[in-house]
Design a protein around this nucleic acid. Structure first.
Lengths: 136, 136
DNA sequence: TCCAGATTGCTATGGGCAACAACAATCTTA
DNA sequence: TAAGATTGTTGTTGCCCATAGCAATCTGGA
């Protein structure tokens, strides 16, 4: 079958991203975590008492979409919120959350290592800067 | 804010992909096309009388999900189906579909060029092979 | 000090995309 | 020709993201 997409960086980017996302999703599912959740928890771990807004701003997640996300983490006993003032609340990991985040970090580290290993050595150093140039 | 994702190729891949996807989606919307639709039409253009199954296999789209996709293209008068045998049907572009596909191709070409231009020159040649190694 | 405007968290809703299970009709091949 | 594979289809579900709108609260300039 003739494939006009064979040399399209845009298409390859989409496919590579979704392939890798699927792989990571599968791995994190073993911890009963979704990718976004693991990401959010890692951010909270590094920045105790951040607000939902700041997390959202950093990850480009709309405020509205943070709500069910954080609710699920809270219901699972992984994070807790403490009021900062009347409207803001600081986020922090619970003990269980800290433990789960550590596990997630291990999973992610291994995943990233495998990702890089898939790339032929001569291209490896170029991947991150090239990707970053596309969005940062 | 401390950002543990700053050097994560997996995260950068996701962000780059979604940034680029959003840009292309926006451009193709001017033609009243979604990204998948443009992709499917380009594939049909290069392979007249392909079946929905083969398109799906090539793009990793489930058969079930091809149905509404093709229905929309057919309703828009962009593609037509001709029975090959009792169960298979060949897909082809209509005149309108051919025209729209040409427009989409122009849009996509421009988009791909801008994408590559965002990448610092020394990394450009490495992007496609690195990405392809992740999924092909 | 007070008020306009910004910020925060939230509800509700919908679109796009993909996954799964199941089915009937049809083709293929052993 | 019967068993199994293929094709197109329906229906349903889930995730992620976007928008609009709202109430409560904070903040900064007059």
């Amino acid at each position: 079958m003739r494939d006009p997409l064979a040399t399209s960086p845009g298409y390859s980017l989409r496919r590579a991203s979704s392939a890798m996302a699927a792989l990571l999703t599968e791995r994190l599912a073993l911890l009963d975590l979704r990718t976004v959740e693991a990401t959010v928890m890692m951010l909270i771990a590094e920045n105790p008492q951040v607000t939902a807004s700041r997390i959202g701003a950093s990850l480009d997640i709309q405020r509205a979409n943070m709500v069910p996300l954080l609710k699920r983490l809270e219901d699972a006993g992984l994070i807790e919120r403490t009021p900062i003032d009347g409207k803001s609340q600081g986020l922090a990991l619970t003990a269980a959350g800290t433990e789960k985040t550590a596990a997630a970090r291990t999973t992610i580290r291994r995943f990233e290592a495998e990702l890089i290993e898939r790339v032929p050595p001569e291209h490896r150093a170029h991947l991150l800067p090239a990707l970053d140039a596309l969005w940062r």
